[in-house]
Structures are given as C-alpha cells and as structure tokens.
Amino acid sequence: MAYFSNVKQIDFEGAQSTNPFAFKFYNPEETFQGKTMEEYLRFGVAYWHTFTMDGSDPFGAGTMSRQWDRYSGMDLAVLELPA
C-alpha cells in the first residue's frame, strides 16, 4: 500500500498470538462452505456499509432513506419486509 509502506502485511497468527499487529481470529485463507474467509469478508463489508448505513460520511449527513430505517433493535431483526 502506498499510504502505509512502512507497515508490513498483517498475517494470521491465531488466538494464542501476543503480536498486537496480527490477526487472531480472521484467517483469510480458511474455507467455509467452499469459499475463503477473504471472499466472505469482502461481501460482508460491502453489505454492512451499503444496506445498514445512511450514506453519511465525514463531510455531511446521510442521503439514503430506506423503509427499514424506522425500526431498530429486535423489531428490525424480526421484521419481514415486502419484496
């Protein structure tokens, strides 16, 4: 990375690692149901920021308004939205 050229790549070392700059639980090469964790995380991050946020950023208020925004907590967890 151009911005962090002085930082070496962060590797998976497992839960027993004492290295503060190591992945302890995220192993990008571990597979689950035929895909690597790296493949799942890529979608997970995109999903979280795309569907659960309001479009805000450090420079201004959100611009997205969705029908599920009026719910929170357990109400949102059990909500069945129309297709």
Rank of each mutant, 00 (worst) to 15 (best):
L79S: 00
F21Q: 15
E29C: 01
F59S: 15
W48P: 00
G55A: 03
A46S: 13
M37P: 00
D54Y: 02
R70F: 06
Y71W: 09
F25W: 15
F4Y: 14
F32M: 07
T63F: 07
G55R: 02
A61N: 12
G14T: 01
P82N: 09
T18I: 11
G34S: 03
T52E: 06
M37K: 13
D57R: 02
F51C: 05
K8F: 04
G34K: 06
N27Y: 12
D11W: 07
L81E: 00
T31R: 08
P58Q: 11
D11S: 13
A46R: 11
Y40P: 01
S17I: 09
S56M: 01
M64I: 15
A61Y: 13
D11G: 02
F12D: 07
Q16R: 12
W68N: 02
L81H: 00
T18A: 14
A22M: 11
E80W: 01
F4C: 07
I10S: 03
G60D: 10
G73H: 08
P20R: 04
G44P: 00
Q67F: 02
L76C: 06
F4E: 09
F21H: 15
F32W: 13
R66F: 01
M1L: 09
E80Q: 04
N19F: 08
T31K: 11
P28S: 05
E13N: 08
I10G: 00
F43T: 12
P58K: 13
G60V: 09
G14K: 02
P28D: 06
V78D: 13
P20F: 05
Y71I: 00
D75A: 14
A22L: 10
P28R: 06
T18R: 15
T36V: 05
